[in-house]
Simulated scan of single mutants.
Amino acid sequence: MSSKQLNETSKFLSYVLRHEPQAIGLQLDSEGWADIDSMIAGAAKDGRILDTALIQAVVSSSDKKRFSISDDGQRIRAVQGHSTSSVSLQHIEKEPPEFLYHGTATRFLASIRQQGLIAGSRHHVHLSQDRSTAIAVGQRYGKPVVLKIEALRMYQQGFKLFQAENEVWLTSHVPEKFLCEI
């Protein structure tokens, strides 16, 4: 399989498993799981060729560990990043490290300074443990800037933070007082 095919399939899986499962007639349960055979059939009706081997290759080759396959190999889900209201993943609350990072583009800074980091259309704000990941995320949206979050102080003040299966940290909101540009 070519890296182009893996990349295009990963983008498609992100689209249907995070945002628009109904685009191919797919049903997700409340934990985000979809039946792999149903996804293959829905994709075929949409003119996209998927098979179990390609899906498994995307899951295993993803450096960001965006997806997981169930223990029985019959279902797949995105591990975070959902905007669809049918999914409500139950992440385990966890004490974070002292600092976490968020990558964004400079054009969003004025809004962030006013309202902090908000989830927007997604269920959570995504935070990383290292600056390099945050920079890479910020570059997707324009000229990158990295925000340093006082995550442990947030947690100590009652904010809930969770860690997804792929090590991404999640929270519902980061008030401006816990942010600084670096």
Rank of each mutant, 00 (worst) to 15 (best):
S3V: 07
Q5G: 00
Q5N: 10
L6R: 02
L6W: 03
F12T: 12
L13H: 03
L13K: 02
L17E: 03
L17H: 02
R18C: 08
R18Q: 07
R18V: 00
H19P: 00
H19Y: 05
P21R: 01
P21K: 01
A23N: 08
A23Y: 03
A23T: 00
G25T: 03
D29Y: 11
W33K: 01
W33F: 07
D35R: 02
I36T: 06
S38G: 11
I40P: 01
I40Y: 09
I40N: 00
G42M: 05
A43Y: 01
K45W: 01
K45R: 09
D46P: 00
G47W: 04
G47S: 07
G47T: 00
R48M: 07
R48W: 01
I49Q: 15
L50R: 05
D51Q: 09
D51E: 11
A53L: 05
L54N: 05
I55R: 06
I55K: 01
Q56D: 13
Q56W: 09
A57K: 13
V58D: 05
S60F: 12
D63V: 13
K64H: 14
K64T: 13
K65F: 10
R66E: 13
S70G: 03
S70M: 05
S70Y: 01
D72Q: 00
G73T: 08
Q74F: 11
A78Q: 07
Q80M: 11
H82K: 04
S83C: 06
S83N: 06
S83D: 07
T84Y: 02
S85P: 08
S86R: 10
L89C: 12
Q90N: 15
I92V: 14
I92F: 09
P97I: 05
H102N: 11
H102S: 09
T104E: 12
A105R: 10
T106W: 04
R107T: 06
A110Q: 12
A110W: 00
I112L: 11
R113S: 09
R113A: 12
Q114E: 15
Q114T: 13
Q115D: 05
G116W: 05
L117A: 06
I118G: 08
G120D: 08
G120I: 10
S121A: 15
H123F: 04
H123M: 05
H124N: 10
V125Y: 12
H126F: 15
H126R: 03
L127E: 11
Q129R: 14
Q129D: 09
D130L: 00
R131T: 14
R131F: 13
R131N: 10
S132A: 15
S132F: 14
A134R: 06
A134T: 09
A136Y: 08
V137G: 02
Q139C: 10
K143L: 06
P144L: 02
P144H: 09
P144M: 13
V146F: 10
L147V: 03
K148H: 01
I149Y: 01
I149E: 00
E150W: 03
A151N: 02
L152E: 06
M154V: 10
Y155A: 08
Q156L: 14
Q157D: 13
G158N: 04
G158S: 02
G158F: 06
F159S: 14
F159G: 03
K160T: 04
L161R: 11
Q163A: 08
N166A: 06
E167D: 14
E167G: 03
E167Q: 15
V168L: 10
V168T: 15
L170T: 02
L170F: 09
T171Y: 12
T171N: 08
T171V: 14
H173L: 09
P175Q: 04
K177L: 04
L179Y: 00
I182G: 08
